[in-house]
């Protein structure tokens, strides 16, 4: 009984403890929301909130994967391309998917199987990334840069450069991008699930702890019996599968797959993860931080949209915010350090 009770109370405090390092970011997020709600009266409506959820869930799903990658001290630039590959594969295999390029129309499979195949193709891309990085010891930056070109090429090869549209889109597939479950948009729901699983994995599994250890000090991790190559490979596979999932959801939402889909997404995703306090050097970061990072960028984008600010101002502001936020991180960090040595 008493054990139960202590667990219950500690659950609440645990959440608080989890959030504490991100208080500044969280405060920034709330401040932003308050400002936005003053400037744009329809900002704080339920519809708009759900919209923010839905819009950001796609990059959000990828950000969770990217958090794992950055924790190992790696990076993945190929996620935008993987996003497109998965979208194209799924669209071409699903009944109703139609393209002017004949090979895209050859095989039709049930929706679920098509999606699984698309995810498996993504997983293979991730596995190749992982193997090239761990076995051939190519730097992640270069390895995934090459994969980005390569996977994009595969997409062009597969689609012939033609978009794949739907005539018509099957309901079973449309549900992923446009459907609702208990009033929540399905993409947002999938995002929430990915966040919860990601948070659980990082906090409560050996695998999660291993990722921190590998990024924190690879040699120590190895000498403590952690299998470096296997764990890193897995992270790239998870990353690729999540990118593929995001690509499929996007394809469903816009009812079209294109060879240029997801171009440049890697940069946005990395930005939101880093904004959430995850270190590019590895070993430091949390899912909560990433989620806050995503929403800070998301809320800004949404607010600026409501205000009708042109796209280019949005990207300027986004860039400035990344610099300011990270500059603040670095600044507060060094001042803390100084205190310790004095």
């Amino acid at each position: 009984m008493s054990g139960d009770k202590s667990k219950n109370t500690s659950f609440g405090t645990k959440i608080l403890l989890g959030i504490r390092p991100h208080l500044m970011l969280l405060a920034a997020l709330f401040l932003l929301m308050i400002i936005m709600s003053f400037i744009a009266p329809n900002f704080l409506t339920k519809g708009n909130m759900l919209d923010i959820m839905r819009v950001n869930s796609i990059k959000g799903i990828m950000s969770i994967g990217m958090t794992l990658i950055l924790l190992t001290g790696g990076i993945d630039l190929s996620i935008g391309a993987t996003f497109a590959v998965a979208g194209a594969v799924a669209a071409s295999l699903i009944g109703g998917g139609y393209s002017d390029y004949a090979t895209s129309n050859l095989i039709k499979l049930p929706t679920l199987i098509a999606i699984i195949i698309a995810l498996m193709v993504s997983a293979m891309i991730g596995m190749v990334n992982g193997v090239v990085i761990t076995k051939l010891r190519v730097e992640p930056f270069i390895a995934t840069l090459a994969m980005m070109t390569f996977a994009r090429g595969i997409t062009y090869l597969y689609t012939g450069g033609y978009p794949i549209n739907f005539k018509p889109i099957p309901d079973s597939f449309a549900w992923f991008g446009k459907g609702y479950f208990l009033d929540i948009p399905v993409p947002a729901l999938i995002f929430i699930i990915v966040v919860l699983v990601g948070g659980f994995v990082l906090k409560y599994t050996c695998y999660g702890r291993s990722l921190y250890a590998i990024g924190g000090n690879r040699e120590t991790a190895k000498l403590s019996g952690i299998q470096i190559n296997k764990n890193i490979c897995r992270a790239y596979i998870v990353m690729a599968v999540l990118s593929g999932l995001a690509g499929i959801i996007m394809t469903s939402r816009v009812a079209s797959a294109s060879a240029v889909a997801g171009e440049g997404y890697e940069m946005d995703v990395i930005a939101s993860v880093v904004l959430g306090g995850t270190s590019l050097a590895g070993g430091k970061g949390t899912i909560i931080g990433t989620v806050i990072g995503i929403f800070i960028l998301g809320v800004i984008e949404n607010g600026l949209n409501i205000l009708g600010i042109p796209t280019y101002f949005k990207i300027i502001i986004k860039g400035l915010i990344i610099i300011l936020a990270l500059g603040y991180h670095a600044f507060s960090h060094t001042s803390k350090k100084r205190k310790v040595t004095v």
Partner: peptide
């Protein structure tokens, strides 16, 4: 460089 993960805490290093 080989025995500890410096930015981890005592607990995480102990159970590594």
């Amino acid at each position: 460089r080989q025995g500890l993960i410096l930015r981890m805490n005592v607990k995480d290093n102990t159970t590594l």
